[in-house]
Design a binder for these strands. Structure first.
Length: 855
RNA sequence: GGGCGUUUAGCUCAGUUGGAAGAGCGCCUCCCUUACAAGGAGGAGGUCGGGGGAUCGAGACCCUCAACGCCCACCA
């Protein structure tokens, strides 16, 4: 049963009390009670489990929660699961640092291994299985902490439906999704030059790249002419790749080089003959207008190499060092193999950075460096989590086809409803800029393995062209520890046996299936039918090119459909210097302190004030305002219930002032509902708040006396009825934002949770507010304000009796005032009959106060 | 190099069909008023980034410039 307001309402302890009650009562449980059209399903971003949640998470997840709560109150069965993104590199790195271990896949599993209490100076090498086990232990601890924080924040998640991206369900879904793409010919394997992070020892995809400005230098280097032609000078920032040079290239229209096309030049130090070729991408304005093509210095090299059908002469290995070479036997053909070998041996084994230093000295000595290096800064490609520039190495990798489908994927992007709409531009820019298929294999450990084995031929070589795949019913599988059907484990790596694919999938290859994963794709047809395609994807803008794009790709191929209809993009949280808050910048605020200091509702208020897609400053001031608002809701509710008895529907709202207030409330309900329908939660909050303060400051003051019973019974009942109605509506309008305090005040007079109550509608106000003149409230508030100002100006108490008031205003406004004049006089402590009106152009009020002695 | 966004009071931001510049914080003054002193009432403070233009009328529409932020880019 409903309780009564306490003597002294407080915000303290609301989080603990109500989150426990919601849990017991199953307030946010997804009931499977409705068909697809009665369900609202949310594809929640699974936060990366790599330490702790920060205030940016609190910010954006609050936005989603407000929408979820709104939809629930609109009568939808809200499907709102939470996931943890625990697979992938962030976790591996954290485990390495946390336990002081490193994965060595050549080692055997040690069932008795226990990590040291504190990481030692030397990393302990452990087997892949031991490493993966540690990853599992650590993420489980983190996930508990994350859930605690989310519960404290009041997310209305159904906690019985959590998932992880490394869990068994995710492994099944990711492997099934992969096998389907393979069967459809949309996933393929290829030996190709790929961007490679030397430190992580893995290939990375275009979506994980970022540019960083780095110092470098132009080196002007002479290539010797042949056939009696002049020498040519090229400029390069990577002279250490001269041994990998396969051609020079200039623009076909460049008159300086036109007569050189088809002829050869000789590389300095190594004497390798390479052709001079023409290609549109060569920029006559850059450097000397002629460039060296190496295998491979940058992505342009890859383009040239592919389009000009050039040979591969790779020198950089996966560890970032120059390989050893035999110039007599390998694919290098030098005019002077002895000199070439001697020169190259100076570089072999060095890192690219060291090799560059050495080769510049050698070129200077040989006279082929025609000018001293010219320092520049230039953008260099990095893996977003990496610390050294990426190299390009040739390796066997899995890809998902995206390039061929670019147009269809662009159409998918415009079918989506973007909030805010301009975010679609980022998607479009990304898809239009795709320059390769999506590389999904990673040479790492804590990820989902490719469910693929390869036959080993009688001669011991591996046949990559005839992959062995499992039945879907056998998923998930681990090819590195299980044999494929028809083989025994003893045949691993043996002639006529098999090998497992050693790689794991890119984390996005799993995350791109979150809609399928949470909806029970192929595992829970009933759930799937009720939830998929989903309604909403909320996420941040910097992962449009990764998470959003890849999710669209997967649903496009699997279902020929969008994975969801709406996408709501949150902005970032900026620190007071307007810098993005991020861990690497060290300016992150951990949320729990603020949740405890201001209360969850207050922090949510700050978060919900940030408009969709707009970067928002971290602002404790807004949290203070939110806290004050929550306290105001407590007190206003207590007062209103005290004078109104909390009853609605027992009396007519007959007085003009009360009807005017309800008319404004009616507008508010329309506004807030429209705003929420357009995913503009911030607008809904702002409108509700504005109404609420005028409800407290003006309406409550104006009707206080009448509600207490100072006039006739009809007037008193009208005020009480309007107060209770207003309170009920306001409590529900605030509920998506301030779930704790609204639940508290709702419990004082209503049964059940406010979060399961019906969102207010105009219909429920219809009878009381229909056709009312809203200006009665405005004029009454204006005149009361003028009386207060007079008292304030004269430094008198607001209780000071007023002996005379002259109000001038237009006829229509005076007519409106006449309908509320008793309330105005009572609220302003104006003596009976002392308020007179005169026609005027605009509102002026003259106020005479009782002399101080008479008080 | 291309694109998107932002620019309104000292600060954080509203201002949705163009119609007399707003809120909160901070600051100042006053008030213990039985819902609320973690409060209430009132006040000061802005040529709405600059410059053009269409309009009776622009913070809002068009053009242009600038600053800041972000996204994308084949970066020799």
């Amino acid at each position: 049963m409903a309780a009564t307001p306490p003597e002294k309402p407080t915000l303290d302890g609301l989080e603990e009390r109500w989150s426990a009650r919601w849990d017991e009562a199953g307030t946010y449980r997804f009931d499977r009670a409705q068909p697809r059209e009665g369900v609202y399903s949310i594809d929640t971003p699974p936060p990366t489990v790599s330490g702790s949640l920060h205030v940016g998470h609190v910010f954006s997840y609050t936005h989603t929660d407000a929408v979820a709560r709104y939809k629930r109150m609109r009568g939808f069965d809200v499907f709102y699961p939470m996931g943890w993104d625990d697979n992938g590199l962030p976790t591996e790195r954290r485990v390495q640092n946390y336990y002081g271990v490193r994965c060595d896949p050549t080692l055997h599993y040690d069932p008795d291994f226990r990590p040291p209490d504190k990481p030692g100076k030397q990393e302990i090498a452990i087997s892949r299985r031991n490493f993966v086990e540690l990853c599992g232990i650590l993420v489980e601890e983190d996930e508990k902490k994350f859930e605690e924080l989310w519960r404290h924040l009041g997310l209305s998640v159904d906690w019985s439906m959590t998932y992880t991206t490394i869990g068994e369900r995710a492994r099944r879904a990711a492997q099934r999704g992969f096998l389907r793409l393979l069967a459809r010919g949309r996933a393929y394997q290829r030996v190709a030059p790929t961007l490679w992070d030397v430190d992580f020892g893995t290939a990375v995809s275009q979506a994980e790249l970022e540019d960083r400005e780095l110092p470098g230098a132009y080196h002007a280097i002479r290539f010797a002419g042949t056939d009696g032609q002049d020498d040519l000078v090229i400029e390069t920032t990577r002279p250490e790749l001269i041994p990998a040079c396969v051609a020079l290239v200039a623009h076909p229209d460049d008159a300086r080089y036109r007569d050189r096309f088809g002829h050869e030049v000789r590389t300095p130090l190594f004497g390798v003959r390479v052709p001079v070729l023409a290609h549109d991408l060569a920029d006559p304005a850059k450097g000397s207008g002629i460039a060296m093509i190496c295998t491979f210095g940058d992505t342009t090299d890859v383009t040239w190499w592919r389009e000009l059908n050039l040979p591969v002469r790779a020198v950089v290995e996966r560890d970032g060092r120059l390989r050893t070479l035999d110039w007599g036997r390998d694919e290098w053909t030098s005019d002077d193999p002895t000199a070439a070998q001697r020169n190259y041996d100076e570089l072999a084994g060095r890192t690219t950075k060291q090799a560059q230093k050495r080769i510049v000295d050698m070129l200077r000595e040989s006279g082929d460096l025609v000018a001293e290096p010219k320092p520049i800064t230039h953008p260099v490609k990095f893996y977003e989590r990496g610390e050294r520039p990426l190299e390009i190495v040739t390796s066997r990798q899995w890809f998902i086809n995206t390039l061929d489908e670019r147009d269809a994927l662009l159409r998918r992007g415009s079918e989506l409803r973007w909030h805010p709409p301009h975010m679609e531009a980022r998607y479009r820019a990304w898809v239009e800029g795709l320059n390769g298929d999506w590389l999904i294999s990673r040479q790492r450990y804590f990820g989902i393995p490719f469910p693929v084995w390869y036959p080993v031929r009688a001669d011991g070589t591996v046949d990559h062209d005839a992959p062995i795949v499992p039945e879907e019913s056998a998923l998930p599988v681990d090819p590195s520890s299980e044999p494929p059907a028809g083989y025994t484990e003893e045949q691993r790596g043996k002639p006529d046996g098999f090998v497992g694919d050693p790689d794991v999938m890119d984390t996005w290859a799993t995350s791109s299936l979150t809609p399928e994963l949470v909806s029970g794709w192929e595992e829970d047809p009933d759930l799937f039918a009720r939830t998929f395609p989903m309604d909403l994807r909320p996420q941040a803008h910097e992962i449009i090119r990764t998470w959003l794009f890849s999710t669209v790709v997967r649903a496009h191929y699997e279902f020929d459909a969008l994975p969801w209809r709406d996408v709501a993009i949150s902005g970032w949280v900026l620190d007071p210097d307007r810098k993005k808050m991020s861990k690497s910048k060290g300016n992150v605020v951990t949320p729990m302190d603020h949740l405890q200091k201001f209360g969850s509702d207050a922090v949510r208020y700050w978060a919900a004030s940030g408009r969709p897609g707009v970067d928002t400053a971290f602002d404790e001031g807004q949290m203070k305002v939110g806290r004050r608002l929550a306290i105001k809701i407590l007190n206003a509710s207590k007062f209103t219930l005290g004078v109104s008895g909390g009853r609605t529907g027992t009396a007519d709202v007959s007085r003009a002032l009360d009807r005017a207030m309800l008319a404004q409330l009616r507008e508010l309900v329309t506004d807030a509902t429209d705003a929420f329908e357009g995913y503009d939660y911030a607008r809904a909050l702002e409108r509700t708040e504005r109404f609420f303060w005028s409800f407290c400051d003006d309406y409550l003051e104006l009707v206080k006396g009448r509600a207490y019973g100072s006039g006739d019974a009809g007037g008193s009942a009208s005020a009480q009825e309007a107060l209770a109605t207003g309170l009920s509506v306001v409590q529900r309008l605030f509920a998506p934002f301030l779930p704790f305090v609204t639940e508290e005040v709702w419990s004082w007079w209503q049964d059940g949770s406010v979060h399961r109550s019906a969102w207010p509608t105009v219909d429920e106000l219809g009878g009381a507010s229909g056709g009312a003149d809203a200006s009665v409230f405005d004029v009454a508030a204006d005149v009361l304000g003028a009386i207060r100002k007079a008292k304030s100006d004269q430094r008198r108490s607001l209780r000071t009796p007023v002996t005379r008031v002259v109000v001038r205003d237009t006829d229509s406004r005076l007519a409106a005032l006449a309908q509320a004049v008793d309330d105005v006089c009572e609220a302003g402590n104006v003596a009976s009959g002392a308020l007179v009106t005169e026609a005027g152009e605009e509102l002026t009020v003259e106020v005479e106060l009782a002399p101080p002695e008479e008080q």
